[in-house]
Structure formats: C-alpha cells, structure tokens
C-alpha cells in the first residue's frame, strides 16, 4: 500500500490535508536536488536578512 494511503486512512484530520507522495518525499533528502535548494534558499534568506538590517 502506498505510504499516503496509509496515512489518509488514519483519521478525518489526516484525510482532509495533503500528504506528499513518494517522489516529493525522495526529493527532500536527494543530495543533488537539496544542494540546489540549499543555494536557492540561502539566496532568498540573504535578501530577507539584507532588507531587515
């Protein structure tokens, strides 16, 4: 059974939200993709930090 099927089944609270599928979950710890996100997030954070000082 798919991971999200298991969790959607558990309660109404769970059933009415969104749960990531296996691809989205894998990308969260995919080192190459996350390195790209690391650069992107840092750029976004630097912009916000610079607007705040």
């Amino acid at each position: 059974m798919k991971h999200e099927e298991k969790n959607f089944e558990k309660s109404d609270q769970f059933n009415l939200t969104m749960i990531p599928g296996s691809f989205a979950r894998k990308m969260r710890t995919c080192v190459i993709w996350q390195f790209i996100r690391f650069v992107a997030i840092n750029i976004k954070m630097i912009i916000v930090v610079s607007k705040s000082h």
């Binding site: 999200e4 969790n7 558990k10 609270q13 769970f14 009415l16 939200t17 969104m18 990531p20």
Partner: peptide, 8 residues
C-alpha cells in the same frame, strides 16, 4: 497539517 499527517 500535511507534515503532521505525513509523520503520523
């Protein structure tokens, strides 16, 4: 809510 449901 998504994170809570995903992590049970």
């Amino acid at each position: 809510e998504s994170l809570f449901a995903e992590r049970n």
